[in-house]
């Protein structure tokens, strides 16, 4: 089953080609659409909502043709824009109720669904206050709520983590994950930050200059290469022997031991082995290839510029090389 299918989809404006013969199939689940600013993400969303005609090619959303059944698609799809879209003098409840009715929900259902949805996105007492006083994180939650309030089959989220601090970003990514796992709604989420989508998405589609660079399942390349980097103060060779004897596969690179992660017991085995030898454990951290490395393109100046503007660890585009994903023990 496909949620979104495009076939040789192109969109040309007089001066620029926003989409260039894009052919992708997107299956249910969370799909990350990655590309630098101007890569064609917003144009694709416009076409998928039936709001702009494609120059050539065709696209279907939930089995409906975007060229002929735009209204039908928009009834079953939720959309969260990248920019601010909330009037400040209205409360979140009133606003989302109105948007629910605009999606065709009868008054009573609109009120019930609004209360439910706002609670699910984590907005409680503050939902009765005018939205002008909300923090960026709260505004993003309301924007997500209005996209979910009519229980769509698919939501299109345009840069939902924009402007959020790292903690807020993690909250939002967790919420997006739940939209699929708990609510059963498929998600297409765009970002120019590759790193943040790998934790959230089942699939990643990378476009650049309107062209498809790569479409793959996240697990294809992030989970198979999981390994544990272990650094100890002394006696690496003996530790290596002990670990091998315990049935683990490990190699020595420099003064680091790279241990393949089998299951959670791997951590215990390493810990016990280190303790048994009586040496100090400097660090133990999970390593895996990140999507960023696989897609990193040194010539992609657009991505570099983006990375420079957001110097966070998630911006792995500009910082290839193996970075730990956390869980370091010192």
């Amino acid at each position: 089953m496909t949620v979104i299918a495009t076939e040789s989809l192109s969109k040309r404006y007089p001066r620029v080609t926003a989409l260039d013969r894009l052919t992708v199939d997107i299956t249910p689940g969370v799909t990350g659409l990655v590309g630098a600013n101007g890569a064609g993400k917003s144009t694709l969303i416009k076409i998928l909502l039936g709001l702009a005609p494609a120059t050539e090619g065709r696209a279907t959303v939930l089995g409906r043709d975007v060229a002929t059944d735009g209204a039908g698609i928009r009834a079953l799809v939720g959309y969260m824009p990248e920019h601010d879209c909330l009037p400040p003098d209205v409360s979140a409840t009133e606003f989302v109720v109105h948007m629910a009715r605009m999606s065709g929900l009868p008054p009573t259902a609109a009120r019930e669904r609004t209360a439910d949805t706002l609670r699910h996105v984590g907005l409680y007492e503050e939902r009765y206050r005018p939205m002008g006083g909300y923090s960026t994180g709260m505004k993003q939650r309301v924007k997500l709520a209005q996209a979910l309030v009519h229980d769509p089959q698919l939501v299109l989220l345009d840069e939902p983590t924009n402007g959020l601090d790292p903690a807020g970003r993690d909250d939002m990514l967790g919420l997006i994950r739940r939209v699929h796992t708990d609510f059963g709604i498929s998600v297409l989420v765009t970002s120019h930050l590759l790193g943040e989508l790998e934790r959230t998405s089942d699939h990643i589609v990378v476009i650049d200059g309107g062209k498809l660079l790569r479409a793959s399942s996240t697990s294809d390349f992030t989970q198979t290469t999981g390994s544990l980097a272990v650094e100890v103060t002394d006696r690496e060779s003996e530790l290596l022997a002990t670990l091998t004897a315990a049935g683990l596969t490990a190699q020595r690179t420099g003064h680091l031991l790279m241990v393949d992660i089998g299951d959670d017991e791997t951590y215990d085995t390493v810990r016990d082995a280190v303790a048994g030898l009586g040496v100090g454990l400097v660090r133990m951290e999970q390593r895996r290839h990140r999507i960023a490395e696989l897609f990193a393109d040194p010539d992609d100046t657009g991505a570099d510029a983006t990375a420079a503007a957001h110097p966070t660890p998630d911006t792995a585009v500009a910082a290839p090389g193996a970075m730990g994903t956390g869980r370091s023990v010192r």
């Binding site: 984590g122 909250d171 990514l173």
Partner: peptide
């Protein structure tokens, strides 16, 4: 994400909507 301190108290699960549109 699973260690995030907020939005974890959700005892009532998600209810889908199959009423009229």
């Amino acid at each position: 994400p699973d260690l995030a301190p907020t939005d974890v108290i959700h005892d009532i699960g998600y209810r889908s909507y199959d009423g009229p549109r």
